[in-house]
């Protein structure tokens, strides 16, 4: 659905030039929720802006729904943008318009008639959970409600792609969860492809099917989240479930990644009983997301090499991803 290929972009010139995007490639499948994570200044904002051509890359190609965006201009570009909704960190709603009129702006731009605009605006407001707020002004709404208006406005013209530029970064954790769940639900119901950028790992955990880690204008790692979690030395795995520093010890240290399959079994207790090891838990980061437990546990396994090897083999035979650190 979205395909970014070898895109580069620099700002400034000469020695002061900043390479915001450095040979970036990624692809997002239809109906997929793809998250790009990274610190501020990593180039995420520039990347997401090249998708709807708010930024023009210096080189490379960006295609959305089979249409090359980098060469579009004028009427063609505006028509292509009707197919790509965008939501923002600071919502960017018009303070002079009511909620309904804000949503209708999107439809005024696509040229819908008055009656059609009204019908569609009320319908989409219902869909994002803002029933009864049509006549309110943005200033009268909470942050979460404002973002719902932003989502309604972005989706009013029935686009097939939604771009989310740090859409939950100005919201509190509970509201963040509600907005993320709404985006996930809409993506499912409407078959919407979502590309989001964020610096919050929780966003990736909660809704992303795939993710990319960005730093210094480059993509360091990308793929389906579940796959990245079970990749050795995965940056994303470590960032999503941080376990801190590895302590100094003479015992073996292993890390187990849970991926929603085995957490109902008492893995650690079984390990201790079966192999006679005094298992120590050095760290754990496990969360339940959408009813599945995901996370990592770092264990200390005292004992001779043979016992440890046996224990690791046993864990692996249960389908767990085990990484031996020392």
């Amino acid at each position: 659905m979205i395909s970014v290929s070898r895109v580069s972009k620099s700002y400034g010139s000469g020695a002061a030039a900043v390479r915001a995007l450095d040979d970036v490639s990624l692809s997002v499948g239809r109906g997929e929720i793809f998250g790009v994570v990274g610190q501020s200044g990593a180039g995420k904002s520039t990347l997401i802006r090249t998708i709807n051509s708010l930024e023009r890359p210096d080189s490379g190609s960006v295609s959305v729904d089979g249409r090359e965006m980098t060469t579009l201009a004028g009427t063609e570009l505006r028509a292509a943008r009707h197919n790509i909704g965008m939501i923002f960190q600071h919502f960017n709603l018009l303070s002079s318009r009511t909620v309904q009129a804000n949503v209708e702006l999107s439809l005024e731009i696509t040229g819908a008639g008055r009656a059609a605009r009204r019908t569609r605006a009320l319908e989409i407001l219902e869909l994002v959970g803002l029933h009864g707020k049509a006549a309110a002004y943005p200033a009268q709404l909470s942050g979460g409600q404002k973002q719902r208006v932003g989502i309604a406005r972005a989706l009013a013209s029935s686009p097939s792609v939604l771009l989310s530029d740090e859409a939950t970064s100005a919201l509190d954790p509970e509201t963040t969860r509600q907005i993320l769940d709404l985006i996930r639900q809409l993506s499912k119901d409407l078959g919407l492809t979502v590309l989001l950028i964020t610096h919050e790992m929780d966003v990736v955990k909660r809704i992303c099917d795939s993710a990319a880690v960005m730093s210094g204008g480059r993509i360091l790692e990308q793929g389906p989240v579940e796959e990245l979690l079970t990749t050795e030395k995965s940056l994303l795995g470590q960032a999503l479930f941080p376990l801190g520093e590895i302590p100094v010890t003479s015992s073996a240290i292993v890390e187990i990644t849970f991926n929603g399959v085995t957490t109902d079994r008492p893995v650690i207790a079984q390990l201790a009983r079966k192999h006679g090891i005094d298992v120590g838990i050095l760290g754990a980061a496990v969360e339940t997301i959408h009813g599945r437990q995901t996370g990592r546990t770092r264990l200390e396994l005292p004992g001779d090499t043979k016992t440890v090897a046996g224990a690791v083999a046993d864990l692996r035979s249960q389908g767990l991803f085990v990484e031996v650190l020392q």
């Binding site: 790509i84 965008m86 406005r153």
Partner: peptide, 8 residues
């Protein structure tokens, strides 16, 4: 920017 993203 928001209006541009809507194709205005």
């Amino acid at each position: 920017e928001a209006a541009q993203s809507l194709g205005a």
